[in-house]
Simulated scan of single mutants.
Amino acid sequence: MSTQFLDWPVIRQLRGADKTGRGTAVMSQKTRSTTSRTATADGVAQSVCPYCAVGCGQRVYHKDGRVIQIEGDPDSPVSRGRLCPKGAASEQLANSTLRQTKVKYRAPYATEWQDLDAEEAMDMIADRFIEARRNHWEDVDPEGRPVRRTMGIASLGGATIDNEENYLLKKFFTAAGAIQMENQARI
């Protein structure tokens, strides 16, 4: 009898202690030598899933500066180690070749996007925010009642913003005089 024949899973099952064929008898050498991606990771970081307002905990495994696996965090009181299909696939979001990693800007009437430095982009946003507030400020309404508000600024949040971020946005926009604030998660 050849040694190849003796290495068949059914023969190993009948000859060995694994009579039901649910253990090592049915494992190939390739399967036995396979290790998980998490076993070879340089480290793990705790994170929160970016997709919805639930805030499921994630463990992000990385190696050589690259995300190699994302799993549910069993220590998370929110999700207790579970992730929905989108959350479980968020490793693809981090490693996609289509992922934008630079600030893109298209000037008015321009046809092409250009890369901007993040600091410059933040300054542009702040300048436009302040200008819109200044240009649309109302101290009183048409009947002379004090309103101290601006109608030139609004906030529309998505479902990925959690309660704490919504609270901070509400405080910030209220302090700036904005009264038009909405969030998808509240609807």
Results as ranks from 00 to 15, higher is better:
37 R>T: 00
122 M>C: 03
53 A>I: 07
117 D>V: 10
134 R>L: 10
62 H>S: 14
123 D>T: 04
18 D>G: 05
62 H>W: 14
87 G>E: 05
19 K>D: 03
60 V>E: 02
35 T>R: 14
91 E>W: 07
158 G>A: 14
184 Q>N: 01
91 E>R: 09
170 K>W: 03
177 G>M: 08
112 E>L: 09
154 A>K: 08
66 R>Q: 14
184 Q>I: 06
92 Q>N: 13
181 M>S: 01
34 T>R: 02
119 E>I: 12
10 V>P: 01
86 K>G: 05
68 I>K: 01
24 T>V: 07
123 D>Q: 10
89 A>D: 12
185 A>I: 03
113 W>G: 08
67 V>F: 08
150 T>S: 15
67 V>L: 14
125 I>A: 09
59 R>N: 12
94 A>Y: 08
29 Q>N: 10
146 P>I: 15
169 L>I: 14
101 T>P: 00
158 G>N: 00
147 V>H: 02
117 D>N: 12
66 R>G: 04
11 I>M: 11
90 S>C: 13
146 P>D: 13
156 L>V: 13
11 I>Y: 11
81 G>C: 12
184 Q>H: 02
1 M>K: 04
67 V>H: 06
70 I>W: 05
90 S>G: 06
37 R>K: 02
51 Y>K: 01
154 A>V: 01
102 K>A: 13
71 E>M: 09
10 V>H: 11
24 T>S: 06
78 V>R: 05
133 R>M: 14
79 S>N: 12
77 P>R: 12
84 C>L: 12
39 A>E: 11
73 D>W: 07
11 I>C: 03
87 G>A: 09
75 D>P: 02
35 T>D: 00
32 R>V: 06
48 V>P: 00
32 R>N: 07
116 L>Q: 03
164 E>L: 13
22 R>M: 06
38 T>I: 12
187 I>C: 09
9 P>M: 09
67 V>E: 09
1 M>I: 03
28 S>E: 05
125 I>S: 01
143 E>W: 15
29 Q>I: 07
46 Q>M: 10
172 F>H: 03
183 N>L: 12
173 F>C: 11
98 L>S: 13
6 L>Y: 07
24 T>W: 02
94 A>L: 03
144 G>C: 10
95 N>L: 09
175 A>V: 12
156 L>F: 15
